[in-house]
Write a protein that binds this DNA or RNA. Sequence first.
DNA 1: ACATGGTTGTCAGGCGAGTGTCAGGAGAGC
DNA 2: GCTCTCCTGACACTCGCCTGACAACCATGT
Lengths: 223, 223
Amino acid sequence: MRLLIVEDEPNLGNQLRNALEGAGYAVDLATDGEEGHFLGSTETYDAVILDLGLPEVDGLTVLDRWRREGKTTPVLVLTARDSWSDKVAGLDAGADDYVAKPFQTEELIARLRALIRRASGNASAELTAGDIRLDTRSGKVTKDGEPVKLTAQEYKLLSYLLHHKGKVVSRTELIEHIYDQDFDRDSNTIEVFVTRIRKKLGPDVITTIRGLGYSLEEPAGVA
Amino acid sequence: MRLLIVEDEPNLGNQLRNALEGAGYAVDLATDGEEGHFLGSTETYDAVILDLGLPEVDGLTVLDRWRREGKTTPVLVLTARDSWSDKVAGLDAGADDYVAKPFQTEELIARLRALIRRASGNASAELTAGDIRLDTRSGKVTKDGEPVKLTAQEYKLLSYLLHHKGKVVSRTELIEHIYDQDFDRDSNTIEVFVTRIRKKLGPDVITTIRGLGYSLEEPAGVA
DNA sequence: ACATGGTTGTCAGGCGAGTGTCAGGAGAGC
DNA sequence: GCTCTCCTGACACTCGCCTGACAACCATGT
């Protein structure tokens, strides 16, 4: 899962980045509205955290532009506390959720998780495929009810595939969503991690679509 | 366990704070409704003690706002002795328990404990995991029936993990709940205390989830 | 006031899991 | 059979975590 933070205040921005990276997200940080809008328009993110009070271009404007461009990425807006007018305006512009500043990191993360879950159309916090089960809240994975120990990267990869169950996901797409901007794009880490996951969860969990990428399917009628 | 006290009368407020800190809680104190609401909205507490007669914004209003914002933190309300109307109103606004002023500190603490226990879904005053047993009433910990002497911080840490048994708890979350507002966030005290607890209770009590945090599990079927 | 014992937070060194790179091998598709 | 893609075992390096030692800080009793 990859996030964009648009926040001009350096302290808060970095603090946020650290917290979210700690929570297992890949994070890009933009420090003004111009850069934020640019990144949001050109890169793909699973969610955006947008501060409203920004230099150059106001946060609301950025949000509005994205929506006009047809971007549907879920956006979580940071508002100053008490600023109800901001909230209303934000709603109109198409924000998906709010957190009042200053905020508690845990709450922000919880809301983000909910946002991403909603956006990918999953009602529940649990993602499943066959006998594999992943709980996004506790961060635990089980197979046949047996807990399986995954490392951070393995978890990210599996979680992304589960969020896009049934679709074919290219290696590039995976790299873009699991790592942040500056990461060597011609590396075979993804293959390596797919292998490692297959070792832990069984060879049939992830299907290779030769030349295109990988896909995680709900196993067909076979019992 | 971290508490918020909202109490305008300085004597009572400080007295409460001392008593509760003595009982092993991390305590923040707000002296008016505005500040109280702000802290309650932005920080995470395990419970709130709320006086109803407050300057600026009334206690009931504060409570009502929190509930509208979706806060589910358990709230214990302090009411004047005979003010039944307050109680009724408080109930409507979503208070979880009452203590009539003037009150006995011990009673308050007992009720708080019950409140927190209920909120975390534990029926009993005892938290257990394997052969570890923690009595929240007496504040005593035993392993295999043998009493174990824990220091205050060790106890807090263990207790928080037990309250969240099975979940992965990040180092940040632990810091936020064990210490009060201003505490250096990048310090390795948590690691140190985990080590110390492991020394006293055995190395397998607390599991490290690399990159994410710690977790306290009910040991699997193995006898 | 002073001494004492215990508790708490900081630091630095060390260790190991986790991660990415590589290279050789297997298999699909033509 | 040849080629291109993907798989996978081994290795090196990094970074996170552990842990022993120290110093500051209480609380307590004298």
